[in-house]
Design a protein around this nucleic acid. Structure first.
Lengths: 336, 336
DNA sequence: TTGTAAGCGTTATCAT
DNA sequence: ATGATAACGCTTACAA
């Protein structure tokens, strides 16, 4: 059996209360007493029992992070930032992978894991506003990504529409006119894909250009292979007018598309310029390096953890929405 | 206050023990009683209090996973597999990032997080055998990667030496003779770098070839930039004899090196063939696709979680060592 | 400044 | 098959 506060108290010749005071840095403890207790703690190698403390306190010091999967670089990097931000606040992160599966995303909201964490940072892919009614309003929750639920819930969002619009405008500014968009999810209304396409369309309309469905590359998951496939199909089906630019709705799509272009002997950026979204680390090392819409992941992570903690500790007022700033990181794939 | 077993018991007209029996699938409960209890649980939206259960049971159902950082693709993919393997056994994973920092790696071993998890799966970079004495032998621990500690500790290892030897032999089998090795950590003795270099050297010796220090590319961290830099320096300093092959001690190094080679107009695989190590997903989409030493990450993760659980539940006998099998995944970077 | 004692919500022991 | 009741190890009024 592990040593308990009782053991420490006995050895130090004090009560458990005093040991607790020392362990919790309660200020009104005599120096001498504190030292005696510390000595006993070290001698016994005492470690506090987290379960007992949590039970008594009614909090666990752990938060959940639900995301599709860590093998997608964007989510791995996001998780890295969230874990770091949580650590700064003395919180520990439990990761749950939903596989972008609807049932598992719902389960993350209700499952038994909820009781061992104080709250959840949640990055859903398959859920939409129609699921809001299923939201348990009791456990603290912060939505990450686009705003899929009403203002009843804390959100940290990415300004998807504006950023995609800026990315498209950037390509237009380079004189490009036939901009393919890769990663479209037909039928989607509130997800990242839908919002970014919306921004793309707005930019074209701003420029007085028509929308051309032949330039929409539809895919399922947002991986490299999907990006390559989509641009491949697009090139095969409309050999008449080559696009002169590609907007990948995320970086892995853009990298896959860039790959496929080069395989076909199409030069990037000379013949076709390419821009991505998210600015994952890989964008700095692809060939050519990839221009991308940059978000400060640390800012997003900090914001999410802060919102969640405020709600956990009850010092949160009305639900808030944090919007992350963005900028375009110019690299070689657009001739930068 | 959340509803408790008391509330459920009251509503169902039974004792808390019976509610507990139902919740824990204790078989000797009358069907009718069980149904009444379930009804009460649903009506009240009861969720079990994990802290209380953990306190009583003396286990938390959580395991720790300590690794350098999630932004390195290999570790992200490893974490994905560990989380999935843990989930199959009803365990939840808390991730701790050490940043490959020695102090933080040691802290992961002793820190307060240890008390909220039942055990730790641990992938250190900076630690070595000299740290074994600091090992607390009480909390269950599984080492991942190379064997840095004695057989007192459970290990899941990767057969680094044999695999690196096979990779090098593969390049030799292609008729290559000047094989650069990228990612060398001079002075290291037990880490992945040292072991893989050892395998490289064995293969050359097996083939009766001399070791040429001019072919050793030394770097610090194992990222893409490091790989590019290392091969760059190597090419600059010995313009006499171009290497005809590159062995990246991991895939990101290999990808960085491949990138730099191509920037310099050196063709892969025609002029120089490249092989990596770990077989991360990116290897399938690089340009050209990267031949690599493949390990089954799921197998490794399963092994680690299984070892740890055995130790946690006390049904582990002597410490064990699991060695993951490997194979060479042939792709375009070696002409495959 | 320190001690006493009452829970926190479960599970386990022992009855019945 | 179910119920009383005592822990599990800690924090927190309340006392002293």
């Amino acid at each position: 059996m592990a040593t308990t506060m009782q053991d420490v108290a006995r050895l130090a010749g004090v009560s458990v209360k005093t040991v607790s005071n020392v362990v919790n840095d309660y200020p009104y403890v005599r120096r001498e007493t504190r030292e005696r207790v510390m000595a006993a703690i070290n001698e016994l190698g005492y470690q506090i029992n987290a379960s007992a403390r949590n039970l008594r306190r009614g909090r666990t010091g752990m938060i959940g992070l639900a995301l599709p999967m860590l093998s997608l670089p964007y989510f791995a990097e996001l998780a890295e930032s969230v874990i770091a931000a949580a650590e700064e606040r003395g919180l520990v992160v439990v990761i749950e992978q939903t596989g972008a599966d609807r049932a598992r995303e719902l389960d993350a909201l209700h499952g038994s894991r909820r009781t061992m964490t104080d709250g959840l940072i949640y990055s859903p892919l398959a859920l939409g506003p129609e699921d809001e009614e299923r939201l348990p309003d009791s456990p603290p929750l912060v939505l990450l990504g686009e705003r899929i639920f009403s203002d009843r819930v804390d959100h940290v969002t990415m300004r998807n529409v504006e950023a995609a619009r800026a990315a498209t405008a950037y390509l237009l500014g380079l004189g490009r006119r036939r901009i393919a968009v890769v990663g479209v999810h037909p039928g989607e209304r509130v997800g990242s894909a839908a919002l970014r396409v919306q921004g793309y369309e707005q930019a074209l309309q701003d420029a007085g250009l028509p929308l051309d469905r032949a330039l929409y590359g539809e895919v399922g998951p947002w991986g490299r292979a999907a990006g390559a496939q989509a641009i491949g199909r697009l090139l095969d089906s409309s050999p008449d007018g080559l696009p002169d630019a590609v907007f990948g709705l995320n970086d892995t799509l853009a990298i896959g598309a860039m790959h496929e272009l080069q395989v076909r002997g199409i030069r990037v950026p000379e013949d076709v310029v390419v821009i991505g979204f998210d600015d994952i680390e890989e964008a700095q090392y692809s060939r050519p390096t990839l221009t991308s819409v940059h978000f400060d992941r640390d800012e997003i992570a900090q914001g999410a953890v802060e919102l969640l903690e405020a709600r956990v500790t009850g010092r949160a007022r009305a639900p808030r929405r944090v919007e992350a700033a963005f900028r375009i990181a110019e690299r070689s794939s657009t001739g930068g």
